[in-house]
């Protein structure tokens, strides 16, 4: 099966010398739109970043490790879940397995990203992967509901991605250096949860998705006591299974059940 054609995004290297240079990416209207759509989420990203920084700074893992983790890992929930484990000296595999379960949502999203992104060169896809956050995904599918490549998608992606990246790192570093001076118990970290709640609401489309959410939420809470954050794995599996059953019950016999 042939890959879909890569949308022509104006390759910078092969431009004819007679034309004026193409405008830089940050002037691209799709890039600007991506950053603008992400702007609504930036306060929550900032709050989440500060909390992550403070948590790491106060955990006793040391400044160097906190800085390295903040600048390189670039995954708030993985950092938050790994921090107490690292501080307690848990074995490496426990830290990684726990973070893997928390990151499972990204794996699920990467399946959804595939039809949009698979036509790009490998190096581009590696760069995209580093920045493919869940917030970015929800905004992206709202703008491009059809899972096909289209011009402007890459610029739109980068607009949101760079906005997120900049705000996240400023906030996270601020949290690391402010440490104790940030009143964590005021509950600013809940802004991150509210942002994800808004994402959840955005993805609620029909009765089937409502059933899936109810099952996932219940399963995640009930299975909370499992080690390594396996409750998230259980919740996703339960919701997928429930939605298959829901589809099978609703579909008239013989029609194949496809919408």
């Amino acid at each position: 099966m042939a890959d879909p054609p890569v949308p022509d995004l104006g390759s910078r290297s092969s431009r004819p010398p007679a034309l004026p240079p193409p405008s830089p990416l940050w002037r691209d209207p799709d890039f600007v739109q991506g950053a603008r759509d992400m702007a609504a989420l930036l306060p929550a990203i900032a709050a989440w970043g500060v909390i992550t920084g403070v948590t790491m700074a106060n955990s006793g893992m040391g400044l160097a490790l906190a800085l390295a983790m903040s600048l390189l890992v670039y995954g708030g929930s993985a950092q938050l879940v790994a921090t107490p484990l690292v501080a307690a000296g848990a074995p490496l595999w426990v830290v990684l397995a726990t973070a893997a379960c928390v990151n499972l949502r990204f794996v699920v999203l990467s399946v959804a990203w595939r039809p949009y992104l698979r036509g790009y060169p490998r190096a581009t896809r590696w760069r995209l992967a580093y920045f493919a956050s869940d917030l970015n995904y929800v905004l992206f599918v709202q703008r491009y509901p059809e899972p096909v490549p289209a011009p402007g998608q890459l610029a739109y992606f980068w607009g949101g991605a760079w906005a997120t990246w900049g705000v996240w790192h400023v906030a996270s570093l601020a949290g690391i250096f402010l440490g104790d001076r940030v009143p964590v118990n005021w509950g600013f970290g809940f802004a991150g949860t509210l942002a994800l709640l808004g994402m959840v609401c955005t993805l609620l489309k029909d009765r089937a998705s409502l059933v899936a959410l109810a099952v996932a939420a219940s399963a995640s809470v009930v299975a909370w006591a499992l080690p390594l954050k396996l409750n998230i794995v259980v919740a996703i599996a339960a919701a997928v299974a429930a939605s298959l059953v829901f589809d099978a019950l609703r579909a008239p016999q013989g029609s194949g059940g496809r919408v």
Partner: peptide
């Protein structure tokens, strides 16, 4: 056969992360 189920997976994954943050306190409902 898994494909129709995967449509809800992103929602389920986010819901699984959010629900305990709202409904649990120190690991208890």
């Amino acid at each position: 056969w898994l494909e129709p189920g995967l449509r809800v997976a992103p929602l389920a994954a986010l819901g699984a992360v959010v629900a305990p943050e709202i409904l649990l306190d120190q690991g208890r409902l």
